[in-house]
Amino acid sequence: MESLLKVKDLTITFIDENTQTVVVDGVDFHVKPGEVLCIVGESGCGKSVTALSILGLLSPNARITSGSIVFNGQDLLEMNEKEIDQIRGSEATMVFQDVMNSLNPVLTIGSQLTEVIRIHMGYDKKRAREYAIEMIKKVGLPDAETVMKKYPHMLSGGMQQRVMIAMALACEPKLIIADEPTTALDVTIQLQIMKLLVELQKEFHMSILLITHDIGLVAELADRVIIMYAGQFMEETSVYRLFEHPAHPYTRALLESVPCIYDDPNKKLTSIPGTVPENYQDIEGCRFYGRCSYSVPACKEKQIYSEFMEGHFVRCHRAEKGEIPFVS
């Protein structure tokens, strides 16, 4: 199938007065129509920067130093601000973690929502209002008329996130980029929101690019998963395969370090020693080297991201050859 979003060799550099830091280092991925792709990683691995770069939302000190982002056949990096504006908010939208800061505190929900609809769909005021109310109902908020008149601070975090989703879905986009959409919410509310996203995704036949650090959420939602570490992709495969046959030592360590409520109570949690390296751009070989329990001298050489099985990519010369034994 033709991919909806195709990102090739994307490199993003943060430029300070006298330093240049490569935070995303040549990543390649694609999103197919109607699929949920998750990018998983710990804080600072570059997953959010990757997501922001797609719709041109990077901060001014960040530069895309190489690569291309093709959405629906158009190269987004070749477009000017005006052309990107046409796509942003209508064909592809974003849902952020921090809802409080994504909604305008001095405008009512109604005026923010109708503004989006009027700009992108060209509806008149009355029709936009009706459509907005319909969208609010769709995301499961009771009493839509009252919600329209409220200001963001009058709603709870879960309700605000529903409003954000209504806004993102209003123009029936082909792609939703969700950056940790439920991290700030409580678990029971998180489950409601995730169920809602999946239902709507099916109904509108959208694709979702989900950025998260939560392994549990990935297991619940993803079709395909990419594991990111220190600016690079480490592994990529289908969600079922990832949880059954994780290849990269980092993926395995990550899966084993998550406490699960149905684990054997006497099992000791495996922790990954050390922390993510600073200045990882200067590391020539495997960036997980110092923390990996399977490392050998050859790991200090440059690691190639290769498809060792159909649809299963890994950046580890030992995993590729099947030299990493299975634990679970």
Binding site: T188, L191, I215, I261
Partner: peptide
């Protein structure tokens, strides 16, 4: 609450 916690098992 138990049901809402995501399980790492697709």
């Amino acid at each position: 609450l138990f049901d809402a916690s995501p399980l790492p098992a697709p």
